[in-house]
Computed example of a mutant assay.
Amino acid sequence: MRLWLGLALLAPLALGAAAAPLVQALLGHDPFTPDLFSRYQPPSAAHPLGTDELGRDMLLRLLHGARVSLTVGVSVALGATTLGTAIGLLAAWRGGWVDAVLMRIADGMLSLPALPLLVVLAAVDTGRFGLPRGEAASDIARIVVILVLFGWVGVARLARAAALTQLSLDYVQAARVSGATEGRVLARHVLPNILGPVTVATALAVAGAILAESTLSFLGLGIQPPAPSWGNMLSNAQEMVFNAPMAAVWPGLMILIAVAGCTLVADGVRRRVP
């Protein structure tokens, strides 16, 4: 039930993000270009959710913001899960000093204050290193890389613990005795049996990445205007809370729905996986 409820919450967001260019063509507005003659307009047929302080259509900016936020969330989750699972499997398989070094690195990463460090890294001017900044694609890539660097640790520890359990079972020993290579044992026997908890961690990582991106964008260190994200839409809404209070409600509601949907999906998967 929770799995389907979570998917029901996430499906409209994903469909809306995918349909953003089509909706933009139907409405005939540019969500990136200011129109000062249309500021603070109430909901209407031309602007279903009204306009913001610069006259931009709120619905279109929410949909384009969904593209950014969901892209960041899914990309970070896949990157962190892939890296963390690989490191966890390596630590469990090799053991010894390899396991000790990798887990001490993970412990060190966990001991760092995540949010302040994310803020410091996000504030670094990548233009000094010859990398573009201020473009949506480069901002997304920068945020994804930063969040993946901090997001693999929990998955690695989870994958290591699950892999150690599987490697100690009789069927793995039987596969080794029968002549299976270590690579085949890991790929055909261990990895499929740890995908359950890893999948749960992936769904939770999507929610965490969306929240982290929204926080950085709210602070002005994530996705830069005019590209919309739910975080920078919330930041802009601070200045018009009395003129257009719904400008703060809509992006906040989108973040709530996305995070709740991912959490419900993770809980539903956890209940279904033995």
Score class of each variant (00 low, 15 high):
127 G>A: 15
123 A>W: 04
22 L>D: 12
21 P>F: 03
28 G>Q: 00
75 S>P: 00
264 L>E: 04
44 S>N: 02
96 G>Y: 06
193 N>Q: 04
230 W>A: 13
206 V>H: 09
199 T>Y: 07
158 L>H: 09
191 L>I: 09
144 V>M: 09
155 V>H: 07
75 S>C: 00
142 R>M: 07
257 I>C: 12
252 G>T: 03
17 A>T: 11
53 E>V: 03
245 P>Y: 01
3 L>S: 15
3 L>D: 13
162 A>R: 05
160 R>M: 05
149 L>N: 00
148 V>D: 10
84 G>I: 08
224 Q>N: 14
128 R>Y: 10
262 C>Q: 02
83 L>M: 10
147 L>P: 14
200 V>F: 00
106 A>Y: 04
191 L>V: 09
168 S>Q: 12
67 R>H: 09
261 G>M: 04
158 L>G: 15
32 F>D: 08
184 R>H: 15
271 R>K: 15
43 P>D: 06
123 A>V: 01
32 F>L: 14
58 M>H: 07
268 G>L: 07
102 L>D: 11
88 G>Q: 03
182 E>Q: 14
95 G>T: 05
257 I>K: 07
129 F>Q: 06
12 P>C: 11
89 L>S: 11
103 M>N: 11
197 P>A: 05
159 A>D: 02
81 T>Q: 01
226 P>C: 05
156 A>M: 05
125 D>F: 08
237 A>V: 02
39 R>Y: 01
118 L>M: 08
45 A>V: 13
251 P>N: 06
167 L>I: 04
223 I>D: 13
57 D>Q: 05
136 A>L: 13
220 G>H: 06
264 L>C: 12
235 S>Q: 12
204 L>D: 13
15 L>M: 14
124 V>S: 01
78 L>P: 00
208 G>R: 03
211 L>C: 07
165 T>W: 11
199 T>M: 11
91 A>S: 10
140 I>E: 10
215 T>W: 04
81 T>P: 02
63 L>Q: 03
204 L>M: 14
178 S>G: 15
111 S>H: 09
88 G>L: 03
210 I>V: 13
255 I>E: 07
159 A>L: 10
176 R>P: 14
95 G>W: 02
189 H>K: 09
262 C>T: 09
71 T>A: 12
91 A>N: 02
